[in-house]
Amino acid sequence: MEAAFAEYLDEFTRRDWETLDPTAVTDPVRVAVVGAGWFARDWALPGISRSAYTEATVVTDVDEDAVEAVAAERDVTGVTPDEFRAGAVADAYDAVYVATPNATHLEYVRAAAAQGKAVLCEKPLEATLDRARRLVAACEDAGVPLMVGYRMQTDPAVRRLRDLLDAGVAGDVVGVHAAMSQTMLGELDGDADQWRLDPALSGGCAAMDLGVYPINTARFALGEDPERVSGRTRSEHEAFAGVDEHATFRLEFPDGVDALCTVSQNAQHASRLEVTGTEARLVLDPAFYEREDRGFAVVRDGTRVDLDFDQVHQIEEEFAYFGHQLLADEPFHPDGEHALTDMRALDGIYESADTGRPVALGDDAA
């Protein structure tokens, strides 16, 4: 079976978007990092540093101690959020990466756009669909490029899965199954005082924080957008009062293809995406977490082939793409309009969970 699809997997980790020579880059894109939480410290800043196309030069956060620590460790300029919004050191960066709680994305993206800086904003775009629309509009009105941090889209494993689907190796796609779960409080040492559990800051928990991964990755792999969604949410523990602890949802794509997804902030660790076609199944397991190697398997006619490939640093790939597209003056694929489709889907899932009825997804409207 390997010979049947080997041509599509040659040079598995190739960057099929790369047109510039990374060794020739002398002036990488200078990035201001907004948010100095664990993800920015442990993953984003190392990813920026590893990429030949980017370098971190500024950091800000509401936590002054975190800013001071990152500034010393990374030899970057630390500023307060007020100083950042006022553009006090705007000459020191070309682009802004926003990695703060969902409901604070808009204020920082709006400030970056007013300064004329390109933006990479974490997903989901904001805590509500309305605020997400305003965020996208702020960049459009200022004429600055906006990319959204869908790191799965630049991961070679996901790109090769899409290649195989496009080549027809799986035949006609019949359905998608995805799962993503974690014991969130356990991984945070039982700390329930954090923003994902505050609906005003997060907009939701399991579906917003985890559900966006299978939603967007399924869209990217299939090359289609869902037309209708339905969902159920539930919370059993006091720490999750006001937000969804568990969520299950269905995305209805064109041609009768459904994606059935389960996400949880309080279940055994899982990270899986499976696309089933008439000719084969394509499986990513593990799939979604940046801190674990991705697994890639093709199953056809009772035979399973697990592919052995060099793993990449997901966040390095994301920032390499971000910096490369800016230096090459090329547009981003996961832009603001693309991300609004996810926000409409999430909004629809929560509406469906409240009403018990499916929700049709139309074009965005303010």
Rank of each mutant, 00 (worst) to 15 (best):
E2N: 07
A3Q: 08
A4E: 13
L20P: 04
L20A: 11
T26E: 13
P28F: 04
V34F: 00
F39H: 14
L45V: 13
L45N: 06
G47D: 05
R50V: 00
S51Y: 11
S51K: 13
E55L: 10
V59I: 15
E64S: 13
A66W: 01
A66E: 08
E68N: 07
V70E: 10
A72H: 09
E73V: 06
T77N: 03
E83F: 11
F84I: 03
F84G: 01
G87Q: 12
G87S: 10
G87V: 13
D91H: 14
D91W: 10
D91P: 09
D94T: 00
A95N: 01
V96Q: 04
V98H: 05
A103F: 01
L106K: 15
V109D: 00
A112N: 05
C121D: 08
P124H: 04
R131D: 00
V136P: 08
C139Q: 02
E140V: 00
E140K: 05
A142M: 01
P145V: 00
M147H: 02
R151D: 02
T154A: 10
D155R: 07
P156D: 01
L161E: 12
R162H: 04
D163S: 13
L164N: 09
D166T: 09
D166R: 04
A167Y: 13
V173A: 12
V176W: 10
M180A: 02
S181Q: 14
M184K: 11
L188F: 14
D189K: 12
A200H: 05
G204W: 09
G211E: 12
P214N: 07
A218H: 01
F220S: 00
L222A: 08
E224C: 04
V229E: 14
R234P: 00
S235I: 02
E236W: 09
E238N: 07
A247R: 01
R250F: 00
F253S: 09
P254A: 11
V257H: 12
C261Q: 04
T262A: 15
V263H: 09
Q265G: 04
Q268H: 11
E274V: 15
V275K: 12
T276P: 01
L282E: 07
F288R: 08
E290I: 08
D293E: 14
D293R: 15
R294E: 06
G295P: 10
G302P: 01
Q311V: 05
I315M: 15
Y321R: 08
Q325V: 02
P331I: 01
H333Y: 07
G336A: 05
E337T: 03
A339Y: 07
L340I: 03
T341Y: 03
R344A: 14
I349R: 13
I349F: 12
E351R: 15
S352R: 10
T355D: 10
G356T: 02
P358T: 13
G362Y: 04
D363R: 05
A365T: 15
A365C: 06
A365G: 11
A366N: 06
